[in-house]
C-alpha cells in the first residue's frame, strides 16, 4: 500500500499555538534536507500567512494545517475556523509588503476562501536544487 506523506494538525487560532505549526513545518523541512537558511525562511513565511488569517492577537477558533511533501517540496495549507464566522466572510487580505516578503521567502503562495467559507492560505517551498 503506497503511503501518502501527509501530516495534519489542528491548533487553536492564537499566537502561542502557531509554534506547533512552525515546529511541524521545520521538522518536515529538515526531513527533506532543507538548509538552515530555508528553515528560517519557512518559519517567517508561516507566521506571515497564519497571522494574516488570525490577526496578531489571535481569535477564538482553530487553524487546520495540512502538510504534504510532493517531489521534494513542502506544501502547506492552512484554514481558519472562527467562532461566529459565516460563509461569505471576506477573503484574508495580504498587504503589498506581505506579498513582497512572501515572494522572497517561498516559491508559491496564495490566500483565499475555501469552499466551506474558511479563510485559507497555501504555500510551497522547494529544496534549493529543485528550484
Amino acid at each position: 500500500m503506497p503511503t501518502q506523506e501527509e501530516v495534519r494538525l489542528v491548533v487553536p487560532a492564537t499566537p502561542e499555538f502557531l509554534r506547533l505549526a512552525r515546529v511541524t513545518a521545520t521538522g518536515l523541512a529538515s526531513r527533506l534536507g532543507f538548509s538552515y537558511d530555508d528553515v528560517e525562511d519557512l518559519r517567517l513565511a508561516i507566521d506571515e500567512l497564519c497571522f494574516a488569517l488570525i490577526g496578531s492577537k489571535g481569535k477564538e477558533g482553530t487553524v487546520s494545517l495540512r502538510y504534504a511533501m510532493p517531489e521534494g517540496a513542502l506544501e502547506i495549507e492552512g484554514a481558519a475556523r472562527f467562532a461566529g464566522s459565516a460563509p461569505g466572510d471576506p477573503a484574508p487580505v495580504l498587504s503589498e509588503l506581505s506579498k513582497q516578503i512572501l515572494g522572497a521567502l517561498v516559491d508559491d503562495y496564495d490566500v483565499f476562501v475555501a469552499n466551506g467559507g474558511e479563510p485559507s492560505f497555501r504555500l510551497r517551498k522547494a529544496r534549493p536544487e529543485e528550484r
Binding site: 515546529v23 521545520t26 521538522g27 529538515s30 534536507g33 538548509s35 538552515y36 530555508d38 528553515v39 518559519r43
Partner: peptide, 22 residues
C-alpha cells in the same frame, strides 16, 4: 547554509533538539 542534520551532528544532539532549540 548547513542542513539541520549537519547542525545536529556538529552539536552532537538530535535533529529534534536542534529544531526545538531554534
Amino acid at each position: 547554509s548547513p542542513t539541520i542534520p549537519e547542525l545536529a551532528a556538529e552539536a552532537q544532539v538530535s535533529e529534534e533538539e536542534v529544531l526545538e532549540a531554534l
